[in-house]
């Protein structure tokens, strides 16, 4: 998939959470959950966002959707005009007012990780899936019921399940309900926040395939957030690796997996189990924990755990540089290192 039209342009996005203390609730420190993210998502592609827990991937997704208000930065959603004749319409999501935001929510939706608490237990399936249509005032009465039935069918659920409650469904089915709900408004962009992490492996594959089918059929664009390298490799066109609120590497999936240029990416990939009993794993064990995002290490945030770290890594913050073609990496020594990728499948 090589559509070059940029749908979403994220520039220098930051989200800080203040830590308050004392009687006067003074701000004593800040958690830099998202610390200057630049991303471009092209129409029709799946961009993976991968990293270990606590690195800020979920916060990134939520800030892009304005479920959290960004501290700084620009998020531009580029919507092509309906008839294709006039120029595309650009909106800065980070600045949108409440009314504008409500309309924009039709264009971008989210699929949550936890299919249990993301569905209101007091609502029937048809109320849950029809809620976006109701809130946005798009369809009423029979029209809405028909649309809900269509949506359920398109995610592989029986329309007869409309009158049932979420607790009557399995995890995989619930996630399908969540997907149907996300599709209700015909969005352009879907942020999938670990959509399969809470599911059994067998069900994971079904849901991933469903997401791919829907993408092909409806021309969706995904920002796919996950910590699971295997899932990312299966579904994504391009992958961004996050570490401590920053993107450390961004490349096309095959390039990233075959030829990683950042030591952190290499370590992440060596942790993926290989389904081959004869395989001799050369795992790169990272020492120490993820540093606190309240006071990240100086220079390159990764240097305390990096086996290639030198003096420059401790003092200077590396920039996200573009190497050959589309491979971006945030490392001082990217050219000099020979890193181990994963053999192609």
């Amino acid at each position: 998939m090589q559509a070059e039209e940029v749908l979403l342009d994220v520039a220098d996005l930051r989200k800080l959470f203040p830590i308050r203390k004392g009687l006067l609730q003074r701000v004593v420190a800040e958690v830099k959950a998202v610390d200057g993210i630049d991303l471009r998502i092209h129409t029709g592609e799946t961009l993976g966002l991968v990293g270990e827990s606590g690195c800020g991937k979920t916060t990134t997704g939520r800030t892009i959707l304005r479920l959290l208000t960004p501290t700084e930065g620009k998020v531009t959603l580029r919507l092509p005009s309906e008839d294709g004749t006039t120029a595309a319409h650009e909106i800065d999501l980070a600045q949108a007012g409440p009314r504008e935001l409500k309309t924009l929510r039709q264009k971008m939706q989210i699929i949550f990780q936890d299919p249990y608490s993301s569905l209101d237990p007091r609502m029937t399936v048809s109320q849950i899936v029809g809620e976006p249509l109701k809130v946005q005032g798009i369809a009423h009465g029979q029209e809405r019921a028909d649309r809900v039935a269509d949506l359920l069918q398109s995610v592989g659920l029986e329309p007869t399940s409309m009158t049932r409650y979420p607790h009557e469904f399995s995890g995989g089915q619930r996630q399908r309900i969540g997907i149907a709900r996300a599709l209700a408004l015909n969005p352009k962009l879907i942020v999938a926040d670990e959509p399969v992490s809470a599911l059994d492996v067998s069900v994971q594959a079904q849901v991933l395939n469903l997401l791919q089918d829907l993408q092909a059929r409806l021309g969706l664009t995904y920002l796919f957030i996950s910590h699971d390298m295997a899932v990312i490799r299966h579904i994504c066109d391009r992958v961004a690796v996050m570490y401590l609120g920053k993107i450390v590497e961004l490349a096309e999936t095959d390039e990233l997996f075959g030829n990683p240029r950042h030591p952190y990416t290499e370590a992440l990939m060596s942790a993926v189990p290989v389904a081959d009993p004869g395989h001799v794993s050369r795992r790169i064990l990272l020492e120490g924990d993820v540093p606190s995002p309240v006071s990240p290490p100086s220079g390159c945030h990764f240097h305390p755990r990096c086996r290639f770290a030198t003096d420059i890594c401790k003092s200077e913050v590396p920039t996200l540089r573009t190497l050959n073609g589309n491979h971006a990496v945030r490392c001082h020594h990217a050219e000099k290192l020979t890193l181990q990728g994963v053999e192609s499948e």
Partner: peptide, 21 residues
Amino acid sequence: ELYIEAAVAVGASREYILRRH
């Protein structure tokens, strides 16, 4: 609860969320 955030994500108002969720 996540379903409150889910309602925000589809553009529901505060009054609607209080009443319906």
